[in-house]
Design a protein around this nucleic acid. Sequence first.
DNA 1: CCTGGTATAGTCAACATCGACTATACAGAG
DNA 2: CTCTGTATAGTCGATGTTGACTATACCAGG
Lengths: 205, 205
Amino acid sequence: MTKHRKVNNLLGLTALAYLTRAPMHAYELGRTLRDNGDARSVKFNHSSLYMVIQQLAKAGFVAERETSREGQRPEKTVYAITEAGRLELLDWLRELIEEPQHEYPHFVAALSLIGALGPDDVVELLRRRLHGLAAQRSEIRDLINTTLAGGVHPLFLVEEEYRLALLEAETDFVERFIDNIVDPETGWGPLWDQFHNTNPEGNSS
Amino acid sequence: MTKHRKVNNLLGLTALAYLTRAPMHAYELGRTLRDNGDARSVKFNHSSLYMVIQQLAKAGFVAERETSREGQRPEKTVYAITEAGRLELLDWLRELIEEPQHEYPHFVAALSLIGALGPDDVVELLRRRLHGLAAQRSEIRDLINTTLAGGVHPLFLVEEEYRLALLEAETDFVERFIDNIVDPETGWGPLWDQFHNTNPEGNSS
DNA sequence: CCTGGTATAGTCAACATCGACTATACAGAG
DNA sequence: CTCTGTATAGTCGATGTTGACTATACCAGG
């Protein structure tokens, strides 16, 4: 049933997690997040961070600790997590792990409208996608290998392993899909072509 | 390189696709979308639709065709796709299929912060997730079976097949993850526990 | 005949997001 | 010693998204 959270932005979750380690100001949080590579897992936008922290403060999950300035630089406001914030973090994390969410990946949307393109066109595009997928996979594999080589426990790489698993599944899917289209015996090509030509807009119904 | 599109909302893409079949007004579009089951593939919100159509109109991808009213009901404005809109639709679809996008699923965010919870807790939550995943999978399988039984070509179900493939991959991943935690020989449990107790906030660095 | 639920059709204001901008400090190139 | 690029720290405004609201029509149950 996915609760209505006062702050409903995963950047907020990440902020709470970091603030349990130590009070920080917004910019520092952003930097840590980037350096830690968590920007790969959570959509991170510099200005969103300031907004999210305001929201967290308004909701009582973090509290302003002190504001200071060094020289002529802009003032910085340090925030600390509150007890309510700790509870929210744990509750939210538990929910995210416990309940699979219905999400809307771009590729799903594209697939649902794929009839608007012709089969030859699609096969070519899917082949290019396979290259992209291979690139992403090897990028992740490199990341994992070099990180593990640095002595980090695999627990801290689960999110990358997960991503990798999904990319592999997608690759398999795309390969099967291509086969389904081009198979000279049972391929969907001819039928699709026919449909596409009499009905060049596509999408079912 | 993902172009900056004037309308950057997949609901807009879907709207364009539907409008290639026939001019429609906003509400009708929404209904068709729901009845067609495309609301499962694209995040659909009643009021977003009106906004998106305005955007499409402003960008010149659709044009107001006529406005009419029946009885005392609100006026309805019928929109038709333009030539620019047709081109945009094809170009956009091609891009979505050709280039895998980096996305940010909720579960990835949760995994990246999972150290904030203890291993026993996590195992329990993951087991519950497995149930949820199984439910989602069988829901999709039912949908596919009944639709195919209705004589619909599998091409119009690729998006559900894709979703199913991802859910299966996720299931495998979660099962492996649980094993990695609980394995009495090599399991991460003890180490994780230790880490979690000396450092109850979690997250690497 | 009245009432509740739902389909029709759309608007609106609150809130969220994101790119662009401001402004200082500082290190290195030339 | 000036110039340029980058790190620091944050604000602002345009745009997007969402839930809640308005208002009519229509059908079924009691």
